[in-house]
Lab assay of single mutants.
Amino acid sequence: MGFKLLSKLLVYLTASIMAIASPLAFSVDSSGEYPTVSEIPVGEVRLYQIADGVWSHIATQSFDGAVYPSNGLIVRDGDELLLIDTAWGAKNTAALLAEIEKQIGLPVTRAVSTHFHDDRVGGVDVLRAAGVATYASPSTRRLAEVEGNEIPTHSLEGLSSSGDAVRFGPVELFYPGAAHSTDNLIVYVPSASVLYGGCAIYELSRTSAGNVADADLAEWPTSIERIQQHYPEAQFVIPGHGLPGGLDLLKHTTNVVKAHTNRSVVE
C-alpha cells in the first residue's frame, strides 16, 4: 500500500471513529477524501466538511520552486461564519470567499490569524475590503508590521502568557507558548472536538522541520505538551499544512522538532 493511500485511509478511519463516538456532533463529509496538494491548482481553494458547521479550507501556493498546501478553518456561528487564517495570499483568499459563498452561503463576518507569517495573514486586506472584521493577538499584529505583512485590524486580548485561553464565538483560542513562531495560536472547536494546530503542528508525513527561522526550538516541545494537557479530548487535529489526523500529530511534531534540534547540535 502506497504512503499517500495509507495517509488518506488514516484520515478516513479517524473521521469514521469520530462519527461513531459522537453521532450528534459529527456529520463528516462523505463526498470524498481530504484534498491534497496535487489536486488543488494554485489560485483555487477546496472546502472539506469535518463536522456539522465545521470545515477546513485548503489552498496551495508556490514557494521556492515548489507547491505547498495550506489549511485553515471555518466555523459556523449562528447565521454567520468565523474564518481562521487566510488562504495564503490575496488571490487565494478572494477564491476562498467565493467558494464559501458557493458552498455554504453564509457571510464571513470575523477572521482570526493564528500567527504573523504570510500563509496566515496574506489576504487580510481582501477580507477587510469584503467587510470582514480581522483579528490577531497584539504580538501577531506587531510582528506582521515588522515583517511588512498585512496586519489584522483588531487585537485579541488575554493571550499574552503561555497557557492563556479565551473564548471567541464558537471557538476557544489558546496560546501554548512559542513553537513554530513566538505568537502562534491554537484554535479548538469544543462542539466538535476539532483542534486546529496551525503551523505549530505537523502532518504525519512530514519528517523535516522546514521553516524554523522564527521558531523557538527549545520551547516548542513544552508548548505541545500544554496543548495535549489542555485538549486531551480532541479527536480531529488539523495541521497548518497537509493531512489531518488525531492527537498523534502532536507527538510526531515533537519528535521531528527534537530530531532537528539534535542534528543542529551535532553539526
Rank of each mutant, 00 (worst) to 15 (best):
G2K: 10
L5H: 15
L13T: 12
T14E: 14
M18C: 02
F26T: 03
V28G: 09
P35E: 08
P35G: 12
T36D: 14
T36P: 03
T36K: 11
S38D: 04
V42F: 15
R46S: 13
Y48C: 08
A51M: 13
G53Q: 08
V54R: 01
T60R: 08
F63G: 07
D64G: 05
G65A: 10
A66V: 08
P69Q: 09
V75W: 00
V75H: 04
V75N: 02
D79Y: 14
L83N: 13
T86A: 10
W88C: 13
A90G: 11
K91E: 12
T93W: 00
L96K: 02
A98S: 09
Q103K: 07
I104C: 13
G105E: 15
G105S: 14
T109H: 15
V112R: 01
S113V: 07
D119T: 00
D119Y: 00
V121M: 04
D125L: 12
R128M: 15
A129Y: 15
S137C: 04
P138H: 04
P138F: 12
T140F: 02
N149T: 05
N149Q: 13
E150H: 03
E150V: 06
I151F: 14
T153Q: 13
H154E: 12
H154W: 09
E157I: 11
L159P: 14
S162M: 14
G163I: 04
D164G: 06
D164C: 08
D164T: 10
D164K: 04
R167Q: 10
F168Y: 05
G169E: 06
E172D: 06
G177Q: 00
D183S: 01
L185V: 08
V187R: 00
V187Y: 00
Y188D: 02
S191C: 04
Y196I: 03
G197V: 06
A200C: 11
A200S: 05
Y202A: 09
A209C: 13
A213K: 11
D216E: 05
D216I: 14
D216P: 14
L217H: 02
P221C: 14
S223D: 02
Y231F: 13
A234L: 13
Q235T: 02
G246E: 06
G246I: 08
L249S: 13
H252F: 15
T253R: 01
V257S: 06
K258L: 14
N262M: 06
V265I: 03
V265R: 08
